[in-house]
Design a protein around this nucleic acid. Structure first.
Lengths: 246, 246
DNA sequence: CCGATAAACTTGTCAGACAACTGACATCCT
DNA sequence: AGGATGTCAGTTGTCTGACAAGTTTATCGG
């Protein structure tokens, strides 16, 4: 544990970023924590100091600190101060918008998704009930009938979420939902919407059907392999195979 | 999108829970969001209404809402109100303390960890460098020399974090670190510290060495299998095998 | 009826005051 | 000399009131 940062020595500058002041202060302080200027155990400057240095009201400072607390960066102790915690293992797993702008970030994220959803497919094969199978079947049918990329994408998302649900494991569901959402947002930002997808449409359908069939049959290993193959090919189609690690 | 909840009809009761008021209000509102009383698109009661109903100051309400924003539950729009977002896919993946108190919760979480760390081991086998191998070797040696359960556990944790690092994928590292921490905290809460672990110590060492050897050899498939076997056995040792899904 | 303006409503920020808590230091008692 | 108790300064937690900025609703005039 390093000695507490001396008050007044933090490079706080002025608040000059976008968004509301409390947002800005929270982001500024988070940056100091994430770049190692403030390390676990360090005490943040007092509220009074921050008010003076940042030229904002105490309410703004307090709201910023409330945010940092919720984000798992700090803990506040009345009468003592606000301290940086061991956030690297306590901060909820989150994907920040700016983090996924580069192809290698997206590739790394999809790589994680490959593992997660392969496992989900295997569990779903073991645990799905008839209703869940019917839902997955419906998703694949909707994909087959989709008239545009958006409908296709929505049915695709529902398929993947349906599989996570069929695992009967809430953590899989939560994480899968979160990853799926962010990956789709990132893809939409990085890649032009395909004007035609007919070239890959049949391939996509075949891949989804293979996954569905394995799940229906209760064949965990085949479901796992089919999902892995499907998602690995997503990566190839996005030309990401060589970008997953720096 | 359901019509906004009518103001005044929320069962807000009084603030009577532990912790600071802003914490309590945030938790209370989060519960309303998570139990479906407030659904995505719904507008929260105004600050003035909350102040009146909860009999707290406006600062407390604002700090609570700041927390909910950071937690991914709501967005606030000046002049309009505070609205519940589609939080189920936008809220960072988090593990709340109370969530992991039952064996079936812990089993579900370990089940997720099995997939994640199996994948990590495979990637680490493909990507590790000599320095990372040396670090893993050191961890296993520390485990072999550990004089008590705490030292063993610490070396074990470092081994797993070292593997996640060797994936060269930041998402794996973040998620692995987060899962490992929470699983250890949950195990410590649910299970008595083993007074003797000599019965399983050799087995544990052998399992870790098998993983290490596969990683050193760059054998992704064997590393994956060895890690899967190791963690599945952790579940068995904790008598969790039959608890992973309800 | 439609467009412009004013008023009302809602969140964002500021400032000041007091409450509750912590730690350091001084004083008192054994 | 050592331990217990009290005081004070510093820090966070809460409350109150005021004004700024943005949105929605109501009013007025053509």
């Amino acid at each position: 544990m390093s000695p507490p940062a001396a008050e007044g020595t933090l490079n706080l500058g002025s608040v000059n970023q976008r968004g509301h002041l409390a947002d800005q202060v929270a982001r500024q302080l988070a940056a100091l924590i994430q770049d190692g200027t403030l390390t676990p155990g360090d005490k943040l400057p007092t509220e009074a100091r921050l008010v003076e240095d940042l030229k904002v009201s105490r309410s703004v400072v307090r709201e910023a600190i409330a945010r940092l607390q919720s984000e798992g960066f700090v803990e506040s102790h009345q009468g003592k101060g606000v301290f940086v915690v061991d956030w690297s293992s306590r901060r909820p797993f989150r994907l920040d918008g700016e983090q996924i702008s580069a192809p290698d970030d997206l590739a790394a994220l999809i790589e994680l998704r490959v593992e997660l959803e392969s496992g989900a497919a295997a569990l779903a094969a073991s645990r799905r009930d008839d209703k869940e199978c019917a839902y997955l079947r419906d998703c694949v049918e909707r994909m087959a009938k989709a008239g545009d990329a958006a409908s296709m994408s929505e049915a695709d998302l529902d398929f993947h979420i349906g599989i996570a649900k069929a695992t009967h494991n809430a953590y899989y569901q939560d994480l899968s939902r979160y990853l799926n959402r962010h990956i789709r947002v990132a893809i939409a930002q990085c890649y032009r919407p395909p004007t035609h997808y007919s070239g890959t449409r049949q391939v996509l359908l075949d891949e989804h059907r293979a996954i569905l069939t394995a799940i229906e049959r209760g064949d965990a290993d085949t479901a796992r392999s089919a999902m892995r193959m499907h998602l690995s090919r997503v990566m190839e189609r996005l030309s990401l195979s060589e970008s997953a690690h720096a």
